[in-house]
């Protein structure tokens, strides 16, 4: 069932989502939250109405183009009928002892299969490539796991899909949308286990102990994720 989220995208972020100016990865994370959060769904449709008004009020010059051929071409296409619209996709992810139902957009993004990697400390990660500006991944934190203390070079968005985790700033459960920026240093931990979807726009920086050695590797990981993207 739909839980009430305690942490939501900022109005500014939802505005950009409604106006269509964000990257693919960020759009996917917000879309998934919006599907789970009635409040943000309402706000999004209000912001879409506002974006429409802005759109209609922006001056639009006549670019002098001659469109009669285009119109003739368009009306030669058949129209859709009402029945053609619906299509459903499988939307469950199977964890060790239970399955988690995913927001539709994430189910679609993961439909080609995920490759899970163990990162140590009980953290598992499966990357998907959505665009060339962000690194997107599912993260599964096993019960009792803890990530090394880290901060971010860019921003990190985390959407909780199942279970819960906590850090110095709070406790997060299903459908919570958490944004961390380069000034936040945090160390997430999960007692009951947690499945998340995360979007990073720059790689993580670890700030403590042996984990700092991961920094160069992490940069490498990010670069690799980017180069995989460009192979598409």
């Amino acid at each position: 069932m739909i839980n009430e989220a305690n942490f939501h995208p900022s109005t500014e972020l939802l505005q950009k989502f409604a106006a269509g100016t964000l990257s693919g990865g960020m759009n996917v994370a917000i879309s998934a939250h919006v599907e789970l959060c009635e409040l943000c769904r309402k706000q999004t449709s209000e912001l879409e109405a506002k974006a429409t008004i802005d759109w209609l009020q922006t001056p639009a010059d006549d670019n002098g183009a001659e469109y009669s051929d285009m119109i003739a071409n368009i009306i030669s296409h058949p129209q859709l009928n009402k029945a053609e619209e619906k299509k459903s996709i499988l939307s469950e992810m199977h964890m060790l002892d239970h399955s988690v139902s995913l927001p539709k957009v994430l189910a679609k993004a993961a439909a080609e299969g995920l490759v899970w990697k163990k990162l140590g400390g009980g953290i598992n990660q499966a990357q998907i490539s959505l665009d060339d500006e962000t690194q997107c991944e599912f993260i599964y934190m096993q019960p009792g796991s803890q990530t090394p203390v880290h901060k971010h070079q860019g921003s990190e968005v985390t959407l909780v899909l199942d279970g819960s985790f906590s850090d110095e700033l709070g406790q997060y459960g299903r459908s919570d949308f958490i944004m961390r920026t380069s000034i936040d240093v945090h160390q997430p931990r999960s007692d009951e286990g947690c499945l998340c979807f995360a979007v990073l726009d720059k790689p993580l920086t670890f700030t403590k102990g042996i984990a700092r050695l991961l920094n160069p590797l992490n940069n490498y990981r990010f670069k690799k994720a980017l180069s995989q993207n460009t192979n598409f």
């Binding site: 679609k108 993004a109 998907i128």
Partner: peptide, 9 residues
């Protein structure tokens, strides 16, 4: 960019 998700998703 990868076509696994589209605007309609």
């Amino acid at each position: 960019q990868p076509s696994c998700v589209s605007a309609d998703d």
